[in-house]
C-alpha cells in the first residue's frame, strides 16, 4: 500500500507540488491525469526517490521513504518496476541485457539464464526473440516501449518480479493502434503480477483501459480523485475541470501552463 500525505516540492521559489495526498491500495491501479507542467513526473520522481520532496510523507507498506537510508531505498526500489516516458533503454547494452538488467546485478547468474529471462519477457510483451541481440537504436518507438515494459516487469535473479509498477506516460508518441496494444499489455502484466500500479498519463483512453482509480493533478494539487466508474458521471456542472480535461476542451477553468 502506498500512502502519500501532503507532499510539497519546490524548485527554488517555484512550487511544483502543493500538498498532494493520495493512497493506493495493494493491487490497485491508480492513473494520475493532468496536463503538461502539472507536476505528474515530479510526483513520480519523488516516489522513486529521484527527487527529494520539500515536505510531506510517502510510505510504502508502512516504510517511510522520505529521508530513508540508502539500504531501505535500495530494498524498496528492488520491488519497483518503472517504464519511462521515452523508455530510457540503456543504449550501450543489447536488448537482452536491458531486459534482464535487474537479474544481471547478481553476479552468480549465468548468461544463458539471463538470456532466458530476457527471451521469456520479450515474448510476454509480444516481441520476437530475434531482437535479443539488437540494440535500442535499432527499435521503433512502439518496440522500445515494449522492451521498456519487459524490463519493468522482469524479475531479479531469484525470480521475484516487482510488485509495484510505475508507468510514466506509457503511450506518449505512439499511434492509436500501438496505444491500445501497450494499454492492453499493461493491463495484462498488472493482472498477472497482482502489482500495485501508478500510471501517469494525459490520454483518456489509457485511463479507461488501465485505471481502477483516477486522480486529476492540476497546478501541483489533486483537484479530483475517484473510481474509474465515476468518470462517466462527470458533467460540466459537477466537475468543470475534469470535464474540460476529459473532453480536451480548449476553453474552461484549466489554464494551459506555457
Amino acid at each position: 500500500m502506498i500512502i502519500i500525505k501532503d507532499l510539497h516540492k519546490k524548485f527554488g521559489t517555484n512550487a511544483v507540488l502543493k500538498g498532494v495526498s493520495l493512497d493506493i491500495q495493494q493491487g490497485q491501479s491508480l492513473v494520475i491525469i493532468g496536463g503538461s507542467g502539472s507536476g505528474k513526473s515530479v510526483l513520480v520522481k519523488c516516489i522513486l526517490g529521484l527527487e527529494q520532496p520539500t515536505s510531506g510523507s510517502i510510505t510504502i507498506d508502512a516504510h517511510e521513504m522520505i529521508g530513508a537510508s540508502r539500504t531501505a531505498r535500495h530494498k524498496i526500489n528492488s520491488r519497483i518496476g518503472m517504464l519511462f516516458q521515452h523508455s530510457a533503454l540503456f543504449d550501450s547494452l543489447p536488448i537482452w541485457q536491458n531486459v534482464a538488467f535487474r537479474a544481471l546485478q547478481t553476479p552468480s547468474l549465468s548468461i544463458s539464464d539471463a538470456r532466458e529471462i530476457a527471451a521469456e519477457h520479450l515474448i510476454r510483451v509480444g516481441l520476437e526473440t530475434s531482437l535479443l541481440d539488437a540494440f535500442p537504436n535499432e527499435l521503433s518507438g512502439g518496440s522500445a516501449k515494449r522492451v521498456g515494459l519487459a524490463r519493468a516487469i522482469a524479475p531479479d535473479a531469484n525470480g521475484t518480479p516487482p510488485d509495484i509498477l510505475i508507468f510514466d506516460e506509457p503511450t506518449t508518441g505512439l499511434d492509436a493502434l500501438m496505444t491500445e496494444i501497450i494499454n492492453d499489455l499493461i493491463c495484462e502484466c498488472v493482472e498477472n503480477l497482482h502489482a500495485t500500479t501508478i500510471t501517469i498519463t494525459h490520454d483518456m483512453r489509457s485511463v479507461r483501459t488501465i485505471a481502477d482509480k483516477a486522480a486529476l493533478l492540476y497546478r501541483g494539487g489533486i483537484i479530483w480523485q475517484g473510481e474509474q466508474n465515476d468518470l462517466s458521471d462527470v458533467t460540466q456542472d459537477t466537475n468543470p475541470y475534469l470535464y474540460q480535461f476529459m473532453n480536451g476542451l480548449a476553453t474552461g477553468p484549466i489554464e494551459v501552463v506555457e
Binding site: F90, D91, Q105
Partner: peptide, 20 residues
C-alpha cells in the same frame, strides 16, 4: 557526452530504479 546523454534521456534515473 556519454553520461550527459544518459542523464538527459533518463538512463541514469532508470539505473536507480533498477536498484543500481
Amino acid at each position: 557526452a556519454e553520461l550527459g546523454t544518459m542523464r538527459v534521456t533518463e538512463q541514469i534515473d532508470a539505473l536507480t530504479t533498477l536498484s543500481t
